[in-house]
Design a protein around this nucleic acid. Structure first.
Lengths: 201, 201
DNA sequence: CTCTGTAGGCGTACGTTGTACATCTACGTC
DNA sequence: GACGTAGATGTACAACGTACGCCTACAGAG
């Protein structure tokens, strides 16, 4: 008998993501999302408990698009594919990086992704505590890389500023920062992952 | 001739840190820090440009206490010591983790720490792009680990909830989460670091 | 000791945010 | 066509960062 709903949670997530993509994370407010949807601010509270839940909804929406199938072959390639897909999904909406870090624990799509990772590791012979540590280390790495790329990209102003530092105070930093400007985000990610995988193997 | 200042930037940083340690990151406001110091809110703006700068000040204060000397011996042990010290400093004030991630690029103590790391890597024979990638991978790892420990500790409620998940939907996740509850934060950190170092070697 | 210029300290006020609360409204069902 | 229910909304408030301008305390000159 009741009045039917006029919004959906995925629709709200998409609207929030549109706001973030267009105007950055700081522009994400309950008012801006409601405006994007053409409804009153308080209408959102019929679908999410609070702002926290809206943010989690955005993360779920981004992660939901990640393909969890893996190709046959070496487990290293399988892990690489799963990490690459997350990175790709996040890079299409780079401003969600801080949200991903804060909310990935509360998001179903994240659990499914972890299950996929564990399946690969299990197939590679990782069991018990070794599997726990392999999984956590890989997750730590990918979270760290995404944070690094977001807050301090090698091609960005921060690195450029370091390259201009006094070589008397920071001899290696200045030199290394100059080198770093020629390293792409993709190279940083893949080479870092190769290092971690070698350590696991 | 002017009126002498009654506060110092380190003093403000210490007050902010005290607020954070006592009441959490959400309690960090310009008003609460001013209250901690016994001055009016607007007085802080004679010392910091805005809230951003106050947050950076807190990160600087935490990182400034990190010993940058390294023991003679294997470079792996030297890297381990430098990472351990950062982790130790941050863990004493665990609520600064999000601030560390956001502001470490704008903080002098962070630059000195990076220089120390690069010196170790240089001594180990890392040069050029290889040194860039080694440095960035180690930083990504430590940032990721700290984030992981902060937002989703293995001993915390999130892991416990995963362990209770349906084994039909998440067979490996449920089992692995149960295992994970017995892994300490120290073990996670050290074993993860061992993996990365092995990959670098 | 008095005077004064300067910069620090602070009171007030404004725009923005998240969201509690009460009210209004539109629709499936009878 | 009437009704009950749950969705949609308007209003309002507390807390936040901070712009602005006034007041005040002190070092140095006289």
């Amino acid at each position: 008998m009741p009045r039917p709903r006029s919004l959906t949670r995925p629709g709200i997530a998409a609207a929030a993501l549109a706001v973030i993509d267009r105007a950055g994370l700081a522009a994400l407010t309950m008012r801006s999302v409601a405006g994007e949807l053409g409804v009153a601010t308080m209408s959102l509270y019929r679908y999410v408990a609070d702002r926290e839940e809206l943010e989690a909804l955005v993360v779920e929406h981004v992660l939901a698009g990640v393909d969890l199938s893996v190709p046959p072959g070496d487990w290293r390639d399988q892990v690489t594919v799963l990490l690459e897909r997350v990175r790709e999904a996040v890079c299409e909406h780079r401003h969600v990086v801080p949200l991903l870090v804060r909310h990935r624990h509360a998001v179903p799509a994240s659990l499914s992704w972890i299950e996929a990772m564990l399946t690969v590791l299990d197939g590679a012979g990782f069991t018990g505590r070794r599997r726990v540590l392999a999984q956590r280390t890989l997750v730590s790495f990918v979270i760290g890389v995404l944070q690094n790329e977001y807050h301090g990209p090698l091609a960005g102003a921060g690195t450029a500023a370091m390259a201009e530092l006094s070589t008397a105070d920071f001899p290696l930093l200045a030199e290394t920062a100059a080198q770093a400007r020629g390293v792409s985000a993709e190279e940083e990610f893949h080479e870092g992952l190769r290092i971690v995988l070698r350590g696991l193997g």
